[in-house]
Every structure is written in structure tokens, then in C-alpha cells.
Amino acid sequence: MSEVRRSRSAAEGDAYRDPSAMDAASDVTRAALAAGRNPRRWGAWYVAEHRFRVMRSYTGTVVVAGIGSPLLYLYALGVGLATIVDGSVGAEPVGGVSYLVFVAPALLASAAVTVAGEEFTYPIMLGYKWNPTFSGMHAAPIRPQQVADGVILSVAVRMLVNAVLFFALMLVFGAVPAATGFLAIASAVLTGLAFGAVLMAYTSTLEEDTGQLAMVMRFVVLPMTLFSGTFFPLTVFPIWLQPIGWISPLWHGTELARVFTYGYPEPIWLTVVHVAYLVAMFAVGWVWARRIAVRRLRK
């Protein structure tokens, strides 16, 4: 604000020297300063609006994935696989609850990570390079940081919609015994964003895709799902393997979701660590993604 005021007085200072010539100019300058106000304040939201419109063009995918995949997974794992798990090993290894109750919050968190994997990879390559709409936004009054913010905001909304649908189906399946269960929606979105922001920053650094993104899917996202206590508790691993889980945002998100949906017993400090870890990871990714946006768009 103070910057704006200073420049205006500078323009008026010039006008003072040569009033007849400068009248029009300071009008023009003033108009520019006024017109810059909305984009400075709401720019990220305008970017999100754009992304929503793009997402609308694949609404079908979003809805089918949003309803279909929880249905599929909850049924296959929580009902199908559960008959074997519950029957043969009992409730003891998974903390005294049915396998459905154990696995459902993990699936919820991992669904958010899947959305992150979709939205923070190819669409980012597209925006910077293949169909450089991000440059177009920046040529308009949008700042590079707002481009990053807007993309993250739009994906957060998509994750929220997905998580709400997923959670509703969990209720239908009877997978949420605790009253605090709805908080798992928030923890899932946080998990998706923590992983997603870092993924977005990484994708933003790529000048071209020579298979890196496929590698990320295969060697980061998939192993992360397997080693994050999703299908079985992390504690079945020897202690020296467990750090793989500790660095995984999905493990923190999964444990957090379990605390909310069925009161999974863990010390309170650990719950705080889960939240802090996810928030920190999101913050790092977010700041990094904004920096790269500036570097790439303001050449």
C-alpha cells in the first residue's frame, strides 16, 4: 500500500513540473493503480476459478474416481480381504478393531495422495510448458506466486470434495465408530496437500518430462502406499525399516485419520507430531513451489 502511495505522489510530482502535459498521464497512472488492486488481492482465487473450469471438463473422471474408487477399495479390502484377516488373525494385530475400520481411514488418506499425484504432475507440466497457460496468467496482472497459490487452492477444493464423498461412503460401510471421525476429512486433505505441494515444486523444476513423473508414480507414490501402514501396521516391520514410514506423509496422515475415526490409541505428542510434520511439509513445498514459479515465469 505504501508503495502504491509513494509512486502516485511521484507521478504527481512530475505533473507539478509540467501540469498541462502531465494531467492525462497521471490519470492513466492512477487508473493503473486502481485496476491493480483486485488482482493483487484476489489473483490466486482467479487462478483457482480457471482451474475449476478446467476440472469441470473432466467432472466425469472426478466423480467416478471420487465415488467409484472408494466403493471398490472399501468393498474389496474392507469387506473382501477383511473376511480372511478378521477370521484368521483376529482383531489383535490391527489394534482391536475390524479390518474394515482399520483400513478405511488409510484408504481415505491415500485417496487424497492419489489426487495430488494426478493434479500436481502433468497439469503443472502443461501449465509451464506444454500449453503455457501460466505464462498467460502472468501476462495478465497475476503474480507468479499467485499462480502457485491458485493451483494449490483449486486442488485443495477437489481433495475436499473427494474426501467428503469418501467419508460418506465410509459411514455407509459402517467404518467410522468414533464421533470425531469427520476430522479425518481435514487430515486427508492436509496429507494430500503436504505431499502434493512438494510434488508440485518438484514438477515445476522440470524443464521437460523424460519419464521423471512416471518414475515418481512408480518409485515414490506406490512404495509410499505400501510402507505407510496402509494395509498393515508399520510395527510389523523391524525397527530399522520403520523410518521409511516415519518420513512418509501418508503414514502420518493415516495414523492421524485412525485417531479420528476409531480412537486409535497413541500418545498425544505423537498426534501433534503427525499434524506438525504434515503442516511443515506443506509449508516447505508451498514456499518452494512459489519460488520456482517466480524463477520460471519472470525470466
Binding site: E3, V4, S7, A11, D14, A25, S26, V28, T29, A31, A32, L33, A35, G36, P39, R40, G43, H50, V54, N131, P132, T133, S135, G136, A139, A140, P141, I142, R143
Partner: peptide, 26 residues
Amino acid sequence: LGLDPDRFGPEIRSQLGVVPQADNLD
């Protein structure tokens, strides 16, 4: 428009129309 682009990028760009060399329509 009387403004320094280093400090008033968004303000200046609010008054410009830009047709880049390569189309970047969505």
C-alpha cells in the same frame, strides 16, 4: 504508463493486452 514495472507489475499489466509469439490459449 508512468510506472516502474519492477514495482508495479500487476498495475501495469492490468492496462496491457498481450499477444505472445506462441499462442497460449487454454
